[in-house]
Design a protein around this nucleic acid. Sequence first.
DNA 1: TGGGAAGTTGAGGCCTGCCTCAAGTCGCTA
DNA 2: TAGCGACTTGAGGCAGGCCTCAACTTCCCA
Lengths: 211, 211
Amino acid sequence: MAKPLRKDAQRNRDLLVAAARELFAERGLDVPLEEIARCAGVSIGTLYNRFPGRGELVGAVFADRVAATRALAEEALAMPGAWDGLVHLLEGVCALQAADLGYNALASGRGPSSAVSGEILAEGRDLMRRIVTRAQESGELRPDVTLEDMVFVIWGHARTVEATAEIAPRLWRRHLALLLDGFRAPAPGPLPEPPLTPEQARRAMSPHRPP
Amino acid sequence: MAKPLRKDAQRNRDLLVAAARELFAERGLDVPLEEIARCAGVSIGTLYNRFPGRGELVGAVFADRVAATRALAEEALAMPGAWDGLVHLLEGVCALQAADLGYNALASGRGPSSAVSGEILAEGRDLMRRIVTRAQESGELRPDVTLEDMVFVIWGHARTVEATAEIAPRLWRRHLALLLDGFRAPAPGPLPEPPLTPEQARRAMSPHRPP
DNA sequence: TGGGAAGTTGAGGCCTGCCTCAAGTCGCTA
DNA sequence: TAGCGACTTGAGGCAGGCCTCAACTTCCCA
């Protein structure tokens, strides 16, 4: 355990995280660090003292969102209806994406490399697997999709949310409903192409792959 | 009509467009202009002589793609099956998105402001409307979707293509198949949220909206 | 073929954002 | 309350990308 920060240092840290949370949510993860510092009422040097780089700041800001996402998955699994549970989780994640440009970038795999990365999703991987399996066993989710296909929902949403956040902030629900209808059993026909392997999914979701 | 360029100037212009086409396709629309000039074997000044800015260069590079997209829509309308026609068009656009990062950015509304913009889609707007209407009249496309909902396919695809182009270059077909299954009649239930109005769609698709 | 218009060049100014570090300030504990 | 060490500060160096312009070269037509 690291030794506790001095009182003023802790206060500045909190101000920085709060400022970053707001700016990331509104404008995405690329806001200039100098602007975050200014907005927190602190010098840029202080920001660099506290966080080696953008990745660590992003990590600090979104730690609670990772937890919230996990909680969402637990709620989903506790729901009586298997399909309803799956929908609850996906709607919840999409709502977070819609409410926060930074979360949206992170969830769709475009965070700074040292950030929580795919953690938001990797976090509850087996939780998620159980949700998917359960929905397939109940006959509501088409049997030919896999856990890995669920990222299509997150990826599919990412751009819609960006494009319509200011114009029709609730429109994403329509897009999601259409997507979910595609996941319903019975499958109208077989799917082309095999799903991503878990390893491919991991690579596809981690930002900035090597050339 | 502008007067024809001098022979060497025309040659340089062609080299620039060719270089830009290649770099845009591989790396997206943000490649440094200096790199395009270098790759064309021409100085940066020449690039600026020929094209006032990135937007005009993008316009010159993608003019033929706009035409190709229109041709695709015409083919679609000429096909005997209404649903097959719709699928032909959407698959074609998605294939172009998958093959060319620049087209992908442009089609999903993230081009430089003065570029062909939504033209790729606006281009064949009534062509598209006829394709959609026909598929609904034949009872294959669910009746509660509108022309404006078709951008969900393009937007939905944009991020999937980016994330998987190098890892599983054919995977997008699986995502598209799932999406299309959501568009099939009969609708499993009503959709939440009204669709975008044409005006909203126009705004959502044009890049860099004002604050 | 000679001269002028059209075209080319690339160094350099500008801007934005990243990151550092020497000097100064402040909080905590003895 | 003195003093040490933790913390803050912000000017400034660096890098990348945009764009300009004065000097130079090339083409084309009279």
